[in-house]
Amino acid sequence: MLNFNIDFTGEFFAFFLLAVCAIVGAVLAVNFTKVVHMALSLAFTFVSLAGLYVVLQAEFVAFVQVLLYVGAVTILMIFGIMMTKHQSEGQERGRPLLETLAAIGCLCLFGILFYAIRSAGFAKPDVPLPDNNTLSIGKLLYSTYAIPFELVSVLLTVAFIGAVALAKREEDQP
């Protein structure tokens, strides 16, 4: 079953390079001790994933990924890091049993997923994607997915107001 008959095309090399970057960023993020280093290496992973989206002919999604994850989410997390104190960074260790159990569980989950991916038979695609990616996505968003699109805008407004209301300092309460 484990026949790795890989055809070495340019796409495979691009995929391999970006995949190594993404995994290295994620592993470093889990292993760093300082919180800011973790956030920055996860930003590296997000940039590598944007590159993978470009390889997958999803240029608009790649652009949104850079704008939203690298631009917004990482910066928001760094704001969160700077507004809170992290004096207990050095004493993270001390729960070896929990970490071992979590690692075993994650490895088991990966094993199951890998087995499922290897044993699934994927059919070859028959038609290529349209060339003008952004134009097609815009047309889809404003015709087929108009109602979900508007609902997402409502949700963003609600989340924005909710975040402001939650983080606002309550003056009258002690």
């Binding site: 592993v27 997923l113 890998f114």
Partner: peptide
């Protein structure tokens, strides 16, 4: 799957 498992860990 690899990224998901690292995130879960």
């Amino acid at each position: 799957a690899v990224l998901f498992c690292i995130g879960l860990y």
